[in-house]
Design a protein around this nucleic acid. Structure first.
Length: 418
RNA sequence: GUGAGUGUAGCUCAGCUGGCAGAGCAUCUGACUGUGGCUCAGAGGGCCGCGGGUUCAAGCCCCGUCACUCACCCCA
């Protein structure tokens, strides 16, 4: 085969389209009830937008970005995630001047140059939400509840909601040091990856699945004990609110965010039905990011859910596309032209029509009508044309009705047979 | 970037110890001259991933290479 999609990119075809549309429709509907507005963002940004916000040493920036020079010699990057682009737009358009909270959602492709595997692609689609301007944990609870509502309405079951607090600029460095101090003389007991993580992202060691690491890290200082008073109070407030809203959740102090800008609340939704890439949605608070982009200090919180990880979970429970209401079966060249005209007229009445536009045997046409799942077949042959009639066959019952060619009447007949 | 597995028809896959390239499904046609589904018959469709080597002979053995898949890493 000469041409094929690039590695990690995929075409989304007919059988999956109704599933995607279902997810998007549910999300839009729920966002509407929570007062979220859609925002459409470019997928290409100045590289700096991402390096500054996500963090120079994060994996995303270090090795996963699609970065290239445009014709003007500027370094541009296909967005690896949505929040950085969103905050750039938020500041650029002074959206902070609107009454808080300002709430937005977006859907679209993201790009990361990773080795593809099950449920992980180089171009992947996210539905994201961002809520700005409120620091109170009430907003955290509301947005997590919103995420929960979307996932529930989509039809997902058996998901795990995990939450934690990763502290803020004030308390996180302290914890990081405490952890490193604790681990310093125990490093020999850890895997190679973890020894590397010790300098890069020591918190990630707490999430390693290698058995020797799990036992070696026993007794390490718990993150949540190192939260400052403000973060502690905020996290307690969130837990209280989630209980109040009856959003089932577990506390996982070892949740790790790969992006530098997160503060306080971090959360993740996972499914055991997926492979090793089991995060369905994830998000967190980013109270310093607007500031970083040159706006006034503004708290924010957001999440993104991964379409490719939800689609396989609900595939099969979403109704797939249906066949046409009517298949027009012309016999002979004259009838073929009449079929074309008749189809156009009936469509204006909202009937879904598939007209066979080249004449072939009635046998093969009936076969085709059956194959594509047509509810009714309209037979238009020389005999019918001469008499100004058509035969309508109900494919479920097999009964045939001979009726005059009257558009109104035909449309009514087809509609009531639906 | 690292490791393992897999590459044969549109799809799912057989192919023995090296001996003419196969099945099921799908598509098209016919059996039924203007009637689908079931059944039966037939047809089209192959650079056996690619390149080299061994051999009288390679889908099969050897070397290389590419692609895909899963996993690590990381993440939605």
């Amino acid at each position: 085969m000469k041409y094929k999609t690039l590695k990690g990119l995929q075409d989304i075809l007919a059988p999956d389209i109704p599933v995607w549309q279902h997810i998007e429709a549910v999300a839009r509907d729920i966002f509407r009830t929570y007062g979220y507005q859609e925002i459409r963002l470019p997928i290409l940004e100045s590289t700096e937008i991402f390096t500054r916000s996500i963090g120079e040493t994060s994996d995303i920036v270090e090795k996963e970005m699609y970065t290239f020079q445009d014709k003007g010699g500027r370094s541009v990057t296909l967005r690896p995630e949505g929040t950085a682009s969103f905050v750039r737009a938020y500041v650029e358009h002074h959206l902070y001047n609107n009454p808080a909270p300002q709430k937005f959602y977006y859907m679209g492709p993201m790009f990361r140059y990773e080795r593809p595997q099950a449920y992980r692609y180089r171009q992947f689609y996210q539905i994201g939400a961002e809520a700005m301007g409120i620091e109170d944990p009430n907003l955290d609870a509301e947005i997590i509840s919103l995420l929960s509502a979307i996932l529930r309405r989509i039809g997902l079951e058996g998901l795990n909601f995990e939450i934690t607090s990763i502290g803020c600029k004030a308390c996180r460095p302290g914890y990081r040091e405490a952890l490193k101090n604790y681990l310093r003389d125990k490093l020999d007991g850890f895997c190679g990856d973890c020894r590397r993580r010790y300098d890069l992202n020591p918190l990630r060691i707490l999430d390693c699945k290698v058995p020797e690491c799990i036992s070696s890290r026993q007794g390490s200082p718990p993150v949540l004990d190192y939260l400052c008073a403000g973060c502690r109070e905020h996290f307690d407030g969130l837990k209280y609110n989630l209980d109040l809203l009856k959003v089932p959740h577990t506390i996982n102090p070892n949740l790790v965010r790969g992006l530098d800008y997160y503060t306080k609340t971090a959360f993740e939704v996972t499914s055991e039905s997926l492979g090793s890439q089991k995060a369905v949605a994830a998000g967190g608070r980013y109270d310093g990011l607007v500031d970083e982009f040159g706006g006034p200090p503004t708290p924010g919180i957001g999440f993104a859910l991964g379409m490719e990880r939800i689609v396989p979970l609900i595939k099969g429970s979403v109704k797939t596309s249906e066949g046409p209401d009517l298949f027009i079966c012309p016999l002979g060249d004259e009838a073929s032209v009449k079929a074309l005209v008749l189809a156009e007229q009936l469509r204006t009445h909202g009937v879904r029509i598939e007209a066979n536009l080249e004449s072939s045997s009635i046998r093969s046409q009936m076969r085709k009508a059956d194959r594509i799942g047509a509810r009714n077949v309209l037979v238009l042959g020389e005999d019918e044309i001469r008499k100004g009639e058509v035969v309508v066959k109900d494919m479920t019952t097999g009964t045939e009705t001979r009726t005059p060619i009257d558009i109104q009447e035909l449309a009514r007949l087809i509609r009531e047979k639906k």
